[in-house]
Design a protein around this nucleic acid. Structure first.
Length: 883
DNA sequence: ATGCTGCATGGAT
DNA sequence: TATCCATGCAGCA
C-alpha cells in the first residue's frame, strides 16, 4: 500500500485504478490515502469524487456495498473512498451520513466516526512518530485509513509537506479534527478500563460541549456505536493512562460553569440547528446517561488528552475558560461553532519583542499539527477580528523533549495590544477547524468578559483596573512588591512570577533575580509613597527619628503620583496630572488625591477645573520637573566623578549601599551583581540596581553624599526600619495584651544604654518605635549590635524586614554589619540634627525625607528640593506584607 | 550595535 | 525525579 499510495503523487496517471487518464498539471484531489497524502485524480475523477459519486461510478461492480439501515441507500462501506460516507451501527450494519445526522439530531445515541476505530493505531503511530504526517490532516481528509497500522509502521516523514502547508483545516470534512483530537488516544484496549469508565464519567460535573462531535467526528459524518465501544475502549485506555492524575479533564472547572449559564457555550448550546452537527444533540443525550461523555468532554473541552506517551494531561492553567466575546461573535456571525482548545497567559517572553510564543507542549501536541522537523510549519490563525495571521509553528529540541513555539506572533500580539499577563486563547472554529486566537486582557477585560469569567481555578486572578483603583480592594491584594508595582501602574512583567527562592545561589541568573527582589522591595517602598490616607481619616502622626509618619488603622488609599515642587513665590506646591486630559494642574502641597484624579476635581483652582483649561505649566517647566529624578541622578554621578572630594570619599555609604542590598537580598551580592542589570530595568530606572555604578567604578561616597545612590540607600534603610518598627509595634501590642506592663516606655537613652536587649518586659502599650525596634532584635547578634550602637533608634541594619524568618547574613555579616551600622549611625545622626532644626540644608536631607512619597519613578521628582513630607504607611498593610 | 536564532539553563511543578 | 517552560545567551547575520 505504501508503494501504491506513494504512487499517488508520483504517477502521471490518475490515481483511480479504473481510470487511465493522465493527471493534469494540477491534479484534482481525492480521498486521503493512508499515508496522509491525497489521491491525485484526473479532472474527471476528481469531479466525480467531489460530487460524492466516486464509488457509485467506479466501484459499482466491486464488493463491499452495504445498505443504509435507515434509508436503504447503498453505501460502499468497504472502501477507503467512502469511508466518511457512513457510520457503523451498534447492532451492526451501517447508516449513511444523511441518516446518521438526522438520527443524531433526533437524539439518538452516540455515534462515533468510523475512523475512531483506528484511533488506537493512530495514537500508537503518533507515539512512534508523534509528528509525522499530520500536516496533511488539516486538509480534507475524508478517510481515516491513513492511520492504518501498517502505514504507521512504514510511513515515512514528509517534512516537505509540513513546511509547505499552512495549517488550515478543511471545513468539508471533520475527520482531520477527529484525528487532531484523538490522535493522542492511546492504543491499549483494556476491558478493565472500559468498565471503569462509566464510573469515572459520573464523578464530575461533566457537560461536554456538543461540538465534540465535530472535533471527533468529522463534521457530521456519523459513525455509530459499533465502533463506539471500540473507541470508548481506546479512549478509556487513554484515560487510564492518566489515572495517576485523577482530575484529568473530567472534572473541569469550566465545564461545570459554562453550560449552566450558557457562557461557554461556544461549542455547545449556542449551536444552531442549521450548523450544528446532529451529533451534537446526540452527544448531549449521551451525557445524561453518562456513557462516553467523559472522553467526549475531555476532548471537546480541550481537556487533557492522552498523548502517545500517555502523559498528556494539560495543566489546568491551560484549560480554556471562556471564549472572548469576539470569538463568540464570530461564532454567531458565521454560523459556526467555536471550540476552546487552550489558553495561555503571556509571559514576558511571549509578549516581548522576540515574537516567540511558547506553547504548552501538551497543548501544542494536542491541538496543533504534528511536526517532525524543528522548522515546523506555517500555521494560519485567525484572530477574533477575523484577521488571519500566519505563524510558524515549530519546536526546539529541549532535554530530549521539545519546546513548542509560535514564531512571528509579535504583529498579532501588538495588534491585540497584548502584554505579559494577558491571556491568549486558542480555539477552533467549526466547521472548518480553523484556529482562532482570542485574548483576554489581564487588566482591562471588558465587563462582560469579567462577568463571564469563571474564577480562575489556578488562583491567578485577573485584576481589573477598577479593582486596583478601588481602595477597598487594596487590602485584599497581596502587599507584595508585585502588587505594589501593579498598583503603581507599572506593567507586570511576569504575572506568574516564579517564587524567588534562590537566595544565595551562585548562579548569575539567580543573582539577577536577587536584584529583582531588591527592586521589588523598592517597589514596595514606592507603593508606600503612593499611599494616601483614607478619606476623612485623621492619621496618627508618629515622630520617629525626626521623621513624621502617619499611621493608619485602616487601609490607606492609593494616591495619585504627584510632583512636589516649589513655585516661583517659594510656596510649596505639587503638580498633579489629570487622568483625562493629562494636563498638569497645580495643587496645594498638602492636597491628597485619589488614585484617579481629573481636572473636574480641581477644587483648588476653579479656573482649571476643566480639561479644556490651559495647562499652567509650560512644556519646558514640565520637562524640568518630570525627568528630574533621573537627570539629577546622572548629574550627581557625573559631578561626583569630577569632584576630588567625592573621589576620595569614605567608603561608609558605599558599604552601606552594598550592605543594604545584601540585607535586602539576604546575601551580599558578588561584585558582578551590581553590574548586571536585570532586563526589566530600563533606561531611566531609578532603582538601586540601576543607579549603582558598576562595582569598583563610580564615585566614592561620603557620609554626607547626597547622590542618588546614597539617598536611595538611606531611604531604603529608613523604610526598612520603619517597617520593622511597625511590625514590632504590632507585635508588641499583641504581646502587651498578654503581658503585664512592667514599665512605661523607656526613654531613648535608657534603651540606648540598655545592655540587655531583651526588653520585652518593658513593653509599653503605646507603641514606641524605638523601643520596639530593640525589642524586635531577638537575634543574638542583633542584640549585640544594638547594644553597642550609638544609634539612638537602636536600628539594627541586620534586620531584614522582609526576611525576618530568615537568619541574618552569613557568619561574616558581623563585620559588615558593623561597617554598615557605623555608616548609618553617622548618617542618621546627621539626619536627626538636620531634621530637628528644621532647616532645609542639604538636598540629601530633604530628599531623604521626601523621597518615599516623591520618588516614584517617572512621575516623581528628584527629592533634592522637595519639602519634608510624611510617610503614609498603613500599619496593617505593612504588617501583612512583612508577616 | 542590533536583532535574530537556536539552544541551554534551572526554577517550578 | 522527571518534565515543563520562562528566560538567558552565544553565535551569527
Amino acid at each position: 500500500m505504501t508503494s501504491t499510495s506513494a504512487a499517488a503523487s508520483s504517477s502521471k496517471f490518475c490515481f483511480n485504478s479504473n481510470c487511465k487518464e493522465l493527471k493534469s498539471e494540477r491534479p484534482g484531489k481525492g480521498w486521503r490515502l493512508r499515508n496522509g497524502e491525497l489521491a491525485e485524480l484526473c479532472d474527471r475523477c476528481a469531479s466525480v469524487f467531489e460530487e460524492g459519486r466516486f464509488c457509485d461510478t467506479f466501484h459499482l461492480n466491486v464488493g463491499g456495498w452495504t445498505t443504509c439501515e435507515s434509508c436503504g441507500k447503498r453505501v460502499h462501506s468497504g472502501c477507503i473512498v467512502s469511508a466518511h460516507e457512513f457510520t457503523l451501527l451498534d447492532p451492526g450494519g451501517i447508516e449513511c451520513v444523511a441518516c446518521s445526522r438526522k438520527n443524531a439530531a433526533l437524539g439518538s445515541i452516540s455515534s462515533w466516526p468510523p475512523s475512531l476505530l483506528f484511533h488506537s493505531s493512530l495514537s500508537e503511530r503518533f507515539k512512534e512518530y508523534p509528528a509525522k504526517d499530520w500536516s496533511q490532516l488539516p486538509g480534507s481528509c475524508p478517510v481515516p485509513w491513513r492511520q492504518a497500522p501498517n502505514l504507521f509502521s512504514t510511513s515515512t516523514p514528509q517534512p516537505e509537506l509540513h513546511s509547505r502547508v499552512p495549517y488550515e483545516v478543511d471545513l468539508t470534512t471533520g475527520i482531520d479534527r477527529l484525528n487532531v483530537s484523538d490522535r493522542l488516544s492511546t492504543p491499549s484496549l483494556e476491558k478493565k478500563q472500559y468498565e471503569e469508565f462509566p464510573e469515572r464519567l459520573m464523578n464530575g460535573p461533566l457537560k461536554p460541549f456538543a461540538r465534540d462531535i465535530h472535533e471527533n467526528g468529522n463534521a457530521g459524518v456519523n459513525c455509530e456505536e459499533q465502533h463506539g465501544s471500540c473507541l470508548a475502549k481506546s479512549r478509556l485506555s487513554s484515560l487510564k493512562e492518566e489515572s495517576s492524575n485523577p482530575p484529568l479533564g473530567l472534572t473541569v472547572p469550566y465545564t461545570s460553569t459554562d453550560e449552566a449559564n450558557g457562557q461557554i457555550v461556544v461549542s455547545g448550546t449556542h449551536l444552531r440547528p442549521s450548523s450544528q452537527p446532529p451529533l451534537a444533540k446526540q452527544f448531549n443525550s449521551n451525557l445524561h446517561n453518562g456513557l462516553d461523555s467523559p472522553a467526549e468532554t475531555q476532548i471537546r473541552n480541550g481537556r487533557p488528552r492522552p498523548d502517545g506517551r500517555g502523559r498528556n494531561q494539560l495543566f489546568p492553567r491551560y484549560w480554556p475558560r471562556f471564549t472572548d466575546q469576539d470569538l463568540q461573535q464570530i461564532s454567531a456571525d458565521s454560523n459556526s461553532i467555536i471550540t476552546p482548545l487552550f489558553e495561555k497567559m503571556l509571559s514576558a517572553s511571549d509578549a516581548g519583542r522576540i515574537g516567540r510564543l511558547v506553547l504548552p507542549k501538551k497543548c501544542a501536541e494536542a491541538y496543533f499539527p504534528p511536526i517532525s522537523q524543528p522548522e515546523g510549519l506555517p500555521l494560519k490563525v485567525q484572530d477574533s477580528k477575523g484577521k488571519e495571521w500566519v505563524f510558524q509553528f515549530r519546536f526546539w529540541p529541549n532535554n530530549n523533549s521539545r519546546m513548542y513555539v509560535l514564531e512571528g506572533v509579535t504583529p498579532c500580539i501588538q495588534n491585540m495590544q497584548l502584554q505579559a499577563g494577558d491571556v491568549v486563547t486558542f480555539s477552533r472554529l467549526e466547521p472548518g477547524g480553523k484556529l482562532v486566537m482570542g485574548f483576554r486582557k489581564a487588566s482591562t477585560a471588558s465587563a462582560s468578559e469579567q462577568d463571564n469569567e469563571v474564577k480562575n481555578s489556578n488562583g491567578v486572578s485577573t485584576h481589573g483596573d477598577a479593582e486596583l483603583a478601588d481602595p477597598t480592594s487594596w487590602s485584599k491584594v497581596d502587599k507584595s512588591g508585585y502588587i505594589a508595582k501593579e498598583a503603581l501602574g507599572t506593567k507586570l512583567a511576569a504575572p506568574r512570577k516564579r517564587k524567588n527562592s534562590m537566595l544565595g545561589s551562585k548562579s548569575k541568573r539567580l543573582r539577577i533575580d536577587n536584584e529583582d527582589l531588591i527592586e521589588l522591595k523598592l517597589t514596595w517602598e514606592e507603593a508606600q509613597g503612593l499611599l494616601r490616607p483614607p478619606p476623612n481619616y485623621v492619621a496618627n502622626v508618629v515622630l520617629i527619628e525626626g521623621f513624621e509618619f502617619e499611621e493608619y488603622e485602616d487601609a490607606p488609599v492609593l494616591g495619585m503620583p504627584t510632583i512636589f515642587a516649589t513655585d516661583k513665590s517659594g510656596e510649596k506646591i505639587q503638580w498633579a496630572q489629570c487622568n483625562d486630559c493629562f494636563k498638569w494642574r497645580k495643587l496645594p502641597y498638602d492636597a491628597l488625591l485619589p488614585s484617579k484624579w481629573t481636572c473636574s476635581s480641581n477644587s483648588w483652582d476653579p479656573e482649571r477645573s476643566l480639561c479644556s483649561a490651559a495647562q499652567e505649566l509650560t512644556a519646558e517647566e514640565l520637562e524640568n520637573l518630570v525627568p528630574n529624578c533621573n537627570r539629577a541622578a546622572s548629574k550627581k554621578i557625573k559631578a561626583a566623578k569630577r569632584e576630588p572630594e567625592n573621589v576620595d570619599a569614605l567608603e561608609g555609604l558605599d558599604t552601606l549601599a552594598d550592605l543594604a542590598i545584601m540585607g535586602e537580598g539576604g546575601v551580599l551580592p558578588a561584585s558582578s551583581q551590581a553590574t548586571t542589570k536585570h532586563p526589566r530595568h530600563r533606561p531611566g530606572c531609578s532603582c538601586i540596581v540601576c543607579i549603582q555604578p558598576p562595582s569598583g567604578k563610580g564615585p566614592k561616597h561620603k557620609q554626607t553624599c547626597t547622590c542618588n545612590v546614597c539617598q536611595t540607600v538611606k531611604r531604603r534603610f529608613r523604610t526598612l526600619m520603619m517597617r520593622r518598627e511597625k511590625k514590632q509595634s504590632q507585635k508588641e501590642a499583641a504581646d502587651a495584651a498578654l503581658e503585664k506592663q512592667q514599665q512605661p516606655s523607656l526613654p531613648d537613652k535608657v534603651l540606648e544604654n540598655d545592655p540587655l536587649p531583651c526588653t520585652s518586659a518593658g513593653n509599653s502599650n503605646s507603641p514606641n518605635p524605638k523601643k520596639v525596634v530593640s525589642e524586635g532584635l531577638d537575634d543574638g547578634s542583633n542584640r549585640v549590635k544594638s547594644s553597642i550602637s550609638p544609634f539612638k533608634g537602636q536600628i539594627d541594619l541586620n534586620i531584614q524586614p522582609e526576611r525576618e524568618e530568615e537568619s541574618s547574613p552569613g557568619s561574616d555579616s558581623g563585620s559588615m554589619m558593623r561597617l554598615l551600622q557605623d555608616a548609618t549611625d553617622k548618617y542618621i545622626r546627621q539626619q536627626s540634627i538636620l531634621s530637628s532644626i528644621g532647616e532645609k540644608t542639604s538636598g540629601g536631607t530633604e530628599g531623604e525625607k521626601t523621597s518615599n512619597t516623591v520618588d516614584l519613578g517617572a512621575s516623581h521628582q528628584d527629592t533634592d528640593t522637595d519639602p519634608p513630607t510624611v510617610f503614609s504607611i498603613k500599619t496593617s498593610a505593612s504588617t501583612s506584607a512583612t508577616g
